[in-house]
Design a protein around this nucleic acid. Structure first.
Length: 855
RNA sequence: GGGCGCGUAGCUCAGUGGGAGAGCGCUCGCUUCACACGCGAGAGGUCGCAGGUUCGAAACCCGCCGCGCCCACCA
């Protein structure tokens, strides 16, 4: 026992511990990653970089605390923890926030204005058109502010990250790594460009990926529409999208549907336009739906794409990238019609309308022409939206970059099985997703604040872009912005000139960069020594809603670039739910800002709430639970004060049976909590530690109070040793959860940070106690606590104070238990203010308590 | 339609083959020399429903109901 003499404050308090200790940790470099550590000692975490697009919410606090508890545990286990923070600042959320915040929009025809300053107050007028570089500058300015706010929150929450390793997904390093990886994929044929029907958001006017879609229930109307047929009888179809009739390229029936067998092989004629379309059959058609006859448009939904591809249908595209109907060339090949003038006249009323407007107008037109059968019937149906969008996605043909995923499906499934999932059932979500993939990953976005594709295209003699021969940036050029940088072998003046070059105009999807966070955090290709130390990483912590995006794409990129898994373990957090069990939305999160929470309850209390949520489980937002956490922190403060104030020097060994029993118990607790942590079950570790700690305070500390203040130096030295050992263990057991209060109580009597102290070893504690299980001593502690409880009950029922003297207690029990109790009899008499303690053998155990007369 | 998870005290949840538990809330009591952000005690439950396995089921199996999430479909 080499600890210094404890120095305990008069009135310990939780107030101000966050500021005091986060400054201390920063000053001391407590969480600084030591790259001199050997590879096998390193524990690296692939931090989720939060989207810096505005509001922080309690969900962030919740899941980041889980990771921090794990990081702190591993550090105490002697691992050198690589725990950086990242900011995901590129992408649409930031663009949208900048547009709204500054009242601006990008106009690529506007020139860069080096002196541009946004209006200080956002006015309600039209947004100011600014150049793309000016827009990017505003994005960077705003994200910087946001990132400072995030960092302050994380520091207050007590995340044990090494802030010197912070990365951003828009920073030059991330861009270089992202572009380098892309060029590698391009060279190996894993990235390719294709003009094809693409999922498209009409507001953002960009392609989006399958993973970014979500269903939303929307009201619509089912229209029954008559197509013309050769025999004049007509063919009826049901559709919710009559505005796409001009884009109709075929009618389909199921091959075995006899109702329509006569039509199949023939032609039908579109109403209003008189266009001839073939009637074909395809097994995907469902006979039970509608009339059993379906209209195929290019493109109304993903099934249309399938039919278009498999049946080799032509394209009749009528939707523009802004979601409005295009003018179309009636009468030209592909747009032939029996009645060109009528078609042109009818359709011209739809040109320029949004799909919703066009839908209403064409319904009127069809009514007038008599081709609408009955009234449109209101229906509620699920419609696909871009998850950040406001209007349904459309499918629009455009040129996009793709990364191959479909050829790697099997390997990805294998990867999912090699990963250690915590909790294990989360693997199913990954497998479902991989099994359901229906196309390669579309990674290009027609946006501005993102990592540009590091390629240009040659222009032919006519000045047309030759997409088939992209010019890759040179390694030493990276990161490159092809819109301002010049490709190898060209001069700046050749931009846009026949025989010259043109930049690829797109940026990468935000996930195309986020999927490289292990490489970015580990500085792949930038700092090979560091990368070698930390990759593959140990842990990917994240929430379950982004398994199909972040987790999936990270595995994919790592497999494509490295041929191995990016990490060994994945820990999935749940969401924070409102008390009414609905997912807590970001807007609601604004009501209770995380910083406000931390100020009100204290960081340790909030962390307690977060870490009592089971791994993977959605957890209710409960201020009450934070109050409980605060009580635990206060209890730790006070119990430590009791144990450590004016504590005499410790004896060389434990002597009291009850002391040895208590230490043995704590030893088992330490082992169990450690085992739970090894399985990433921080909640279980906390629960057991907490349960036992309250018992320790209520029974053990009361039982040893007499000896604690004993004038007999030898007795006091014995209990001093027990208190030092138990307190030291409890403080360290709670350190991953309550880092501030634990550091505080540790500082009263120990050197250095508790967060670099070793995790309490069950085996060492058992050795100290004299055995892992001490049958008689532990029984003594147990029986003494039970009798003490009965004595308290008697006092409580008599409405007497707990210190009220007891004349006589008779304990009747088995000989074994009575014999054990003898070992703790003195402590029990002291704790219960018991004058006479008698024991008697009995078949029926009982405790008889005789209080002294009221004084 | 498929998959995953959940359903235990008023609330939040632990318990996975043999005593139905914790905290909060509630009731009653206690200024006890670490702590009133405390201490002690008490009330409160057909463990979603139904069947099966078992000497024994809250736990294991089958079915059903309800809630949540993911995926597919969405003409």
């Amino acid at each position: 026992m080499t600890h210094r003499t404890p120095k305990v404050p008069e009135k310990p308090t939780l107030e101000g511990l966050e500021a005091k200790w986060s400054a201390f940790w920063e000053r001391e470099g407590t969480y600084a990653f030591d790259r001199a550590a050997p590879r096998e000692r390193i524990y690296s975490i692939d931090t989720p970089p939060p989207t810096v697009s505005g509001s922080l919410h309690v969900g962030h606090v919740f899941s980041y605390t889980h990771t921090d508890a794990v990081a702190r545990y591993r550090r105490m286990r002697g691992r050198e923890v690589f725990y950086p923070m990242g900011w995901d600042d590129n992408g649409l959320p930031t663009e949208r926030r900048v547009q709204n915040h500054y009242g601006v929009r990008v106009d690529t025809s506007v020139a860069y204005d080096p002196g541009f300053e946004p209006r200080p107050e956002r006015s309600d007028g039209e947004p100011t058109s600014i150049s793309r570089p000016n827009f990017v500058e505003l994005c960077l300015r705003l994200t910087e502010t946001d990132e400072r706010a995030f960092e302050e929150l994380w520091r207050t929450l007590g995340l044990s990250v090494d802030w010197s390793m912070t990365y951003t997904t828009i920073g030059p390093t991330a861009q270089r790594i992202s572009q380098r990886s892309f060029l590698g994929l391009l060279a190996r044929g894993e990235a390719y460009q294709l003009e094809a029907p693409t999922l498209w958001d009409v507001d953002f006017q960009t392609a989006v990926a399958q993973a970014e879609l979500e269903d939303r229930e929307r009201p619509g109307a089912m229209h029954r529409i008559r197509f013309g047929t050769d025999d004049g009888s007509g063919a009826l179809i049901d559709t919710t999208r009559p505005e796409l009739i001009a884009a109709c390229v075929a009618l389909l029936a199921h091959p075995e549907d006899e109702r329509h067998a006569a039509l199949v092989g023939g032609e039908a004629v579109t109403p209003l336009y008189g266009t001839h379309v073939p009637v074909l059959s395809h097994p995907l058609v469902e006979r039970e739906k509608g009339t059993g006859l379906v209209m195929v448009c290019t493109f109304g939904d993903l099934t249309d794409v399938t039919w278009w591809r498999e049946l080799g249908l032509p394209v009749r595209s009528i939707l523009g990238p802004d979601g409005r109907l295009l003018d179309v060339p009636w009468g030209t090949p592909g747009w032939e019609s029996d009645e060109i003038e009528r078609a042109r006249g009818s359709y011209s009323e739809l040109v320029g309308l949004t799909v919703n407007q066009a839908r209403r107008r064409i319904a009127e037109q069809l009514g007038e022409s008599g081709d609408l059968v009955g009234e449109p019937e209101p229906v509620i149906r699920a419609v696909k939206f871009y998850e950040k969008g406001d209007r349904p996605i459309e499918i629009i043909t455009s040129r996009q970059w793709f990364i191959r995923t479909i050829p790697h499906q099997e390997r990805l499934l294998e990867a999912g099985r090699e990963l250690n999932w915590h909790p294990p059932y989360m693997r199913a979500r990954f497998e479902d997703w991989v099994n359901g993939l229906n196309g390669d990953w579309a990674v290009s976005r027609q946006r501005f604040f993102g990592v540009p594709f590091p390629v240009w295209y040659p222009l032919d003699a006519q000045g047309d872009v030759v997409h088939s021969e992209p010019i890759a940036a040179a390694e030493e050029q990276l990161p490159v912005d092809p819109s301002t940088d010049v490709p190898p072998g060209f001069q700046a003046e050749q931009r846009g000139q026949p025989g010259g070059f043109a930049a690829d105009p797109d940026v990468m999807d935000t996930w195309a960069t986020s999927s490289l966070t292990p490489q970015i955090a580990g500085r792949a290709g930038e700092d090979p020594e560091l990368y070698e130390l930390v990759f593959p990483m140990d842990l990917r912590p994240q929430a379950h809603d982004i398994i199909r995006t972040w987790l999936f794409t990270t595995v994919l990129r790592s497999e494509l670039d490295e041929g191995r898994l990016p990490w060994s373990d994945v820990a999935i957090s749940g969401w924070v739910l409102d008390p009414d069990r609905k997912k807590m939305s970001k807007s609601k999160g604004n009501v209770v800002t995380p910083m406000h929470l931390l100020e009100e309850h204290g960081a340790d209390a909030v962390r307690y709430w977060a870490t009592s949520g089971r791994p993977g489980a959605d957890t209710a937002f409960e201020a009450q639970q934070m109050k409980v956490g605060r009580k635990l922190a206060v209890k730790l403060l006070n119990a430590s004060k009791f144990a450590l104030s004016d504590l005499p020097p410790a004896a060389d060994a434990l002597s009291s049976p009850l002391d040895r029993a208590m230490i043995a118990r704590i030893g088992r607790l330490a082992s169990a909590a450690g085992a739970s942590f090894e399985e990433y079950d921080y909640a279980r570790a906390l629960q057991h530690a907490e349960e036992q700690f309250w018992w320790f305070c209520d029974y053990y500390l009361e039982l040893v109070k007499g000896r604690r203040y004993s004038p007999d130096a030898e007795v006091a030295a014995g209990v001093s040793r027990a208190l030092r050992i138990s307190l030291s263990a409890y403080q360290r057991l709670f350190a991953p959860f309550l880092p501030f209060v634990c550091e505080e109580v540790w500082s009263w009597w120990q050197e250095g940070s508790i967060h670099r102290a070793p995790w309490p070893e069950g085996a060492e504690l058992a050795e100290e106690a004299g055995g892992e299980r001490l049958s008689e001593q532990e029984l003594a502690l147990e029986v003494a606590a039970e009798v003490l409880r009965d004595v308290r009950k008697a006092k409580s029922e008599a409405k007497r104070p707990m210190r009220a003297p007891v004349r006589r207690v008779v304990v009747r029990d088995t000989p074994e238990r009575l014999q054990a109790l003898e070992l703790g009899a003195a402590d029990l008499r002291e704790a219960g203010s018991i004058d006479v303690l008698e024991m008697a053998g009995a078949d029926e155990p009982s405790v008889e308590v005789e209080l002294a007369e009221d004084g």
